[in-house]
């Protein structure tokens, strides 16, 4: 059994299981599945600074923060007990080789994301710049992949379809137009 769990879970197993999070959270406590709100709750809890967007009873939404904490633990358990190596597509390997990225062992490329190179222009742009766009963009869009793409589409809401399409367009533009430049910094 453990051996089976240690295999990579194919998309047709993991995808449906991810989809099931929507009814599970609705039935467990009437919660709409979504992760990016946790970033807002963290702001509201730590540095609200009289900004009206952060003036609300974040404690009532604390489930989101416990869920995020659980996700950390889940990541730890998966890596320590059920890890599997990740196959990288040969043409992606070829492309990355041009930018000196040759280590595919981690979930993130260790040559780009590590403490040592944090202050290089390339890594700083990717780690700090990328993170900032995640936080700013998800809140501006009112949700992320879980809130819009999974929950929003599951509940047939057209604003979520627009958001999802824009996530994809933004990603395609970044990867194919700007990222080659950033990677060669």
């Amino acid at each position: 059994m453990i051996e089976l769990l240690k295999q990579p879970w194919p998309w047709y197993v993991s995808g449906p299981l991810i989809g099931l999070m929507v009814p599970i959270l609705f039935l467990a406590g009437n919660k709409a599945f979504g992760i990016s709100s946790s970033l807002r709750h963290i702001c509201a809890a730590s540095v609200p600074l009289k900004i009206s967007f952060f003036q609300y009873e974040w404690k009532q939404e604390a489930w989101n923060l416990f869920f995020a904490l659980g996700m950390c633990i889940g990541g730890f358990l998966a890596m320590h007990y059920l890890a599997n190596p990740i196959e990288v597509h040969p043409s992606l390997k070829n492309e990355l080789l041009r930018y000196g990225i040759t280590d595919y062992s981690g979930l993130v490329p260790v040559q780009l994301f590590n403490w040592h190179s944090l202050w290089t222009v390339r890594s700083f742009t990717m780690m700090i710049g990328g993170g900032f766009l995640i936080g700013f963009g998800t809140r501006y869009a009112g949700g992320c992949t879980s809130g819009h793409s999974i929950t929003g589409l599951s509940t047939l809401q057209y604003p979520s379809l627009i958001a999802t399409i824009c996530f994809m367009i933004g990603g395609f533009i970044m990867v194919n137009l700007f990222l080659p430049f950033i990677l060669s910094l």
């Binding site: 700013f136 367009i169 933004g170």
Partner: peptide, 8 residues
Amino acid sequence: GGLLFGAG
């Protein structure tokens, strides 16, 4: 926001 998040 969607475009920006997609980029991030």
